[in-house]
Nucleic acid binder design. Structure first.
Lengths: 190, 190
DNA sequence: CTTTTAACTGAATAAATATTCATTTAAATT
DNA sequence: AATTTAAATGAATATTTATTCAGTTAAAAG
C-alpha cells in the first residue's frame, strides 16, 4: 500500500495560513487551499473530513505550537522581571515569525468554525503567565491591578507590535524590541 | 412614488455588524443579513449592488463615525496629557460601545472585500493623534521612541481592554478605566 | 515481478449562497 | 379617488463552492 505523505498535512496547514492572511477566513475555498498546497481538491478530503475539520485541526495545532514557544526558556525560579521579559519576548517573536498564524487565530475567534471550548483552551494557554503576574503583584514589583487588565495590557501591546512590524515592513531589531519592552515594563511596574 | 426608507440602511448595517460579531465575515450570508434586518433578501439589493458593496459601504461608515468620536472634545490647545487622556478615553469608549464595529473593522482588514485604499483611509484616521504624540515628544513629556511604536502601544492596549470587557462581561467603571490609563501613561511618559 | 492496497486525481455532483425578477404593496402626486 | 412609480417581497435562477467518486498511480508486501 501507499503510505500517507505526512508532510502533506503541513503543506495544507501552511497553504491555509497563507491564504487566510491574504484574504481572511471569508475568502478561502477548499479549491484555493488545495491549489496553494499543490495537491488535488480530493486529496484534501483524505486528510480532513471537511472544511470545518480542517480549520479546527489547524486552530488546535496553532494554539499548541504557540503555547510551547511562549514559555520556552522560562524558569519560574528566576526573578520576576527576567521571567516576564523572557515570556514577553517569546510571544512577540512568535507573533512575528508566525504572523499568518496570529491572524488565523484572531479570525477564528469570530468565526462559525471554532466552538467555545477551543476558545477556552486558547485562553488557558496563558495560565503560566497569569501565575507569574500574580507573583509579581505579591512581590510588590508590579501594580496592584486586577490580573485580567495587566495581562491584557501586555498581550495588547504585543499584538500591535507584531502587526505594525508586518504591515509597515519594519525589522524588529534588538534595540526596537527593548524600547517596546520598556514601554510595557514602565506601564506595569509598581 | 414610494420613498426609500432611509432608516432601513441603518437596520442593514446594524444586522451585518451583529452577525459579524457572532460568526465573523466568513459566517454571514445575504439571507441572514436580510432576515436579521427584518427585510426580504431582494430588498437588500435595492440598497446595495451586492455583498461586496454592502461590506465596503459599512466599512466606510464605520471608519467615518469612529473617527468623529475619537477626537470629540479634543482641543489641541490644551496641555498634552489632557489631550492624550481625552483621546484615549474616547477610543476605549467607542470600542466598547460599538464592539461589533470594532470586530468588523478587524475582520475586514484581512478580507477579500476591502482594498488597500480603504485600509490606508483607516490608518489616516489616527493622524491627529499622531501629531499629538509628536508634540509630546517635542515637549519631552513622553519617551523618544519612533511614533509608530508609541501609537501602537496605545492602540494595542485599548483594543485589548475592549475585548476583555466584552468577553468577560466586565463593567468598565471610572476606576478601572483610570487604572488602565495609568498603565498606558506610565509606559509612554518620559 | 506481480499483486495488493491506499493515496491521489480532477471532473462531476451536491449543496449552499448570491442575485434576479415577476408580482404585490404603499406612498406621493394629480 | 385614481394614477403613478418606486419600494418591497420571496420564490426562482444563477453562481459559487463543498464534497464525492470512478478511474489512475505508486509504494509496499509477497
Amino acid at each position: 500500500m501507499k503510505p500517507r505523505d505526512e508532510n502533506k498535512i503541513n503543506e495544507i496547514y501552511k497553504a491555509t495560513l497563507n491564504l487566510v492572511k491574504a484574504t481572511g477566513l471569508a475568502g478561502i475555498t477548499m479549491q484555493m487551499v488545495a491549489k496553494e498546497a499543490g495537491i488535488a481538491t480530493g486529496t484534501l478530503y483524505i486528510y480532513f473530513k471537511n472544511k470545518e475539520a480542517l480549520i479546527n485541526a489547524l486552530f488546535d495545532v496553532c494554539i499548541r505550537s504557540s503555547a510551547s514557544t511562549f514559555f520556552s526558556n522560562y524558569d519560574p525560579e528566576q526573578p520576576f522581571k527576567i521571567g516576564f521579559h523572557t515570556i514577553w519576548l517569546n510571544i512577540v517573536q512568535r507573533r512575528v515569525a508566525h504572523f499568518n498564524e496570529s491572524i488565523f487565530i484572531e479570525q477564528c475567534f469570530h468565526s462559525p468554525f471554532i466552538d467555545e471550548e477551543s476558545k477556552t483552551r486558547l485562553r488557558k494557554m496563558f495560565e503560566p503567565l497569569l501565575h507569574l503576574i500574580e507573583r509579581g503583584k505579591k512581590e510588590h514589583l508590579i501594580k496592584d491591578i486586577d490580573t485580567i487588565w495587566l495581562l491584557g495590557f501586555m498581550v495588547g501591546t504585543i499584538n500591535e507590535i507584531a502587526k505594525r512590524a508586518m504591515y509597515y515592513h519594519l525589522k524588529l531589531t534588538g534595540e526596537i524590541l527593548e524600547a517596546n519592552f520598556q514601554l510595557c515594563w514602565d506601564g506595569i511596574k509598581a
